[in-house]
């Protein structure tokens, strides 16, 4: 602008005359701006009057296009790919699933009771990692002050197309020792399913029978890092996808370890993957503290095996008791 906005550098000993002059200039400038704005609006008015404002429409469409895909995700994710925007979006679905679909009863999860971070070890059940998602969700809801726990996902699922980006966004991490240790070291709890694929791919008649707990990885990590290990029994998730039998040969064509046949799955197409609304119970056992053994005990294979067997049988006891005392699968 050609007109100076100030009459000069301000001096401390200025007299009222100069102040008056400056006010005049300011007023003239304001007047000038108003005129310019009015004239600009005048020029745009006829266009806006003639029905549609194409320019505006085009501009807004362009803006919408350039930000497409950015509204659903944040520009930063954490180092394991978890995205807070995605979590916030999915939380409503998770709440609905937890409270209305599966009506989950949680026992033993108090504001202070399992110290966080800890390693949660649960029985694997159901085809899809709904149990992991729900466990992480329930722990996050009960302890909003702590970082959101992550659930470990078996290899076969985390490498499937479409599953991988979705799971990573909501806090799923590929199950391996390096990942679990890194998460726990940085203060984030981990929900793990040591049975792995053997556990989630059980057929229906074998439900609630725990399989072998891998090679003792969970216990080894808890020993090495000195984090508490919390046994968890999840009851009800076995009935979300009751697998009648498994087909192997066809599955290899599409790169899956097996193709499950449930009362709904291949028959109803993708709709058959909707989990059944069984009633769930989550029982958190007392945290096991392996601290007295010391971190070097992680290399003691016999001790690791013994602790793993004990852990497995304690979870099996919790499951058996809960299954015995429940009245019905769906009520």
């Amino acid at each position: 602008m050609s007109e100076p906005s100030q009459s000069g550098p301000s001096r401390p000993e200025e007299d009222p005359g100069i102040g008056q002059e400056r006010d005049d200039v300011q007023r003239a400038l304001d007047q000038f701006r108003r005129e310019v704005r009015a004239r600009l609006l005048e020029r745009r008015a006829p266009e806006a009057g003639s029905g549609l404002d194409w320019e505006d429409l085009f501009e807004s469409a362009r803006r919408r296009l350039s930000t497409i895909g950015m509204v659903e995700r944040s520009a930063e994710v954490d180092e394991f790919g978890m995205d807070d925007v995605v979590i916030a979006k999915w939380n409503r679905l998770f709440d609905a699933l937890a409270d209305r679909w599966w009506r989950i009863d949680v026992e033993g999860l108090d504001p202070g009771s399992p110290p966080l971070p800890s390693l949660f070890v649960a029985n694997a059940s159901g085809l899809l990692p709904w149990d992991g998602i729900m466990l992480a969700h329930k722990i996050a809801r009960a302890r909003p002050d702590a970082p959101r726990p992550r659930f470990l996902v078996a290899d076969w699922l985390v490498t499937q197309p479409f599953a991988q980006p979705t799971l990573a966004g909501i806090g799923g991490v590929r199950a391996c020792r390096e990942n679990a240790e890194r998460l726990l070291r940085s203060g984030r709890s981990v929900v793990s399913f040591p049975e792995g694929l053997k556990g989630s791919a059980k057929v229906f008649r074998e439900r609630y029978r725990l399989r072998r707990f891998g090679r003792g990885g969970a216990v080894r990590i808890a020993l090495a890092l000195g984090v508490p290990l919390v046994p968890v029994a999840v009851i009800g998730a076995e009935e979300t996808h009751p697998v009648l039998f498994k087909v192997g040969s066809l599955a290899r064509l599409v790169g899956l370890p097996f193709l499950p046949v449930t009362p709904t799955f291949p028959w109803l197409g993708p709709l058959g993957l909707v989990p059944l609304p069984s009633r769930w119970r989550m029982r958190f056992g007392a945290p096991l503290d392996f601290g007295p053994h010391g971190p070097e005990a992680a290399d003691d294979e016999i001790l690791v095996d013994r602790l793993t067997v004990e852990l497995r049988s304690s979870i099996q006891r919790m499951i058996d008791e809960a299954v015995r005392t429940r009245d019905s699968v769906f009520a």
């Binding site: 995700r73 520009a75 790919g81 980006p165 990573a168």
Partner: peptide
């Protein structure tokens, strides 16, 4: 430092 999903990168880069 930091990682980004490929899709976020492309969206950031227009």
């Amino acid at each position: 430092p930091g990682v980004l999903p490929l899709s976020t990168l492309l969206a950031l880069g227009g």
